[in-house]
Nucleic acid binder design. Structure first.
Lengths: 189, 189
DNA sequence: GTCTATAGGTAGATAGAC
DNA sequence: GTCTATCTACCTATAGAC
């Protein structure tokens, strides 16, 4: 017997499958048909919900933000109030720990970030904005005495992204959080 | 008047254009036809030289190694002879400086590395091998007193890759070598 | 809301002329 | 060695039945 899904559940199921497929093959590399197969639908049925491949990607980015960005933003309080070094390290560890629990989101991010370097990629504008915001937030967080927060933010963000990609490549063969803590301990004075 | 090219020059010109195109759109995202257009040929003419899209990719990886790997390997001498911290930092700076002069190779590497996370990607095996070798080499280089070289190698490689990607994303808007030196100075005890 | 059918385009690859 | 022509397959997207 076929389980019926309402509109919202169906959209959510498609988007979660899309996060995995796009993370694996990229925006150019995946096909609506392949994704529809994973959702036990036809391509026409899937397109009914999203209209076009590009609109689907934008919906995926929205969902990624919903799942991830809000939680991260909650960990990264606004305002330039200086924090202690220990507090900063704790916040960074919490972010990495959260990412370690969602490898498919890390992979989607890594894939689209590289693809979206191309100015004509549908996610290009999204990542330009997102990256600027991330650097600004990290610079606020890393506003430590005697430091240039912008330069430090760039280095910390880069090291975090690089280590997460390495973690995917080694098939999660090392403890991401522990290794990150070692990096952060040295990188942040 | 049309300039004639011999076989080897033609192959080289195609491979250099392929490095750029694949770096921009990925293996799945680019087409033989698009690449042939950039080389002022037809797709059939291009395929005469490489046989298939996959074989072209493998030839691209060979060429990347020829251009890059040999030079890097020369900077990273073999053997476990311990080096001073200053020597190590100098070697790392030389590697990054070389990469800064070849952004198209950095971009190709970043793109294929993420795509090749998929086990069925034609470059998957290549990157598994290459990554293991890179970590081993860096571990030899970073064999400093009182350090666990494997763990440190992973962190240093990750930070380097992450910063290079950031440098591409900000359209080379910061000094890659200077920023890397700041990172390395802190990351390596 | 999901299907079948199909339009219209592009892909990789091959055959054969020159 | 490069071309034109072509094959087969797959793509996105739409139209319309149910």
């Amino acid at each position: 017997m076929r389980t019926r899904m309402n509109r919202e559940d169906r959209r959510t199921a498609i988007l979660d499958a899309a996060i995995a497929v796009i993370g694996e093959r990229g925006f150019h590399g995946f096909s609506i048909r392949e994704l529809a197969l994973r959702c036990a639908m036809t391509d026409a049925g899937l397109l009914h919900h999203f209209g076009s491949k590009t609109d689907l990607l934008l919906a995926v980015l929205d969902r990624r933000d919903m799942q991830d960005e809000h939680a991260i933003a909650a960990l990264l309080p606004h305002g330039a109030a200086p924090r202690s070094r220990a507090q900063v390290l704790q916040v960074l560890a919490a972010i990495v720990a959260r990412n370690a629990q969602h490898p498919e989101l890390v992979r989607l991010y890594a894939m689209l970030r590289v693809e979206a370097l191309a100015a004509d990629h549908p996610a290009h504008a999204y990542f330009v904005t997102r990256d600027r915001m991330a650097r600004r937030r990290f610079a606020e967080l890393l506003n430590l005495p005697g430091e240039a927060p912008d330069r430090l933010a760039r280095q910390v963000l880069s090291a975090m992204d690089g280590l997460e990609l390495q973690w995917l490549q080694e098939e999660r063969g090392f403890d991401l959080v522990a290794t990150w803590n070692e990096t952060a301990e040295r990188l942040i004075p």
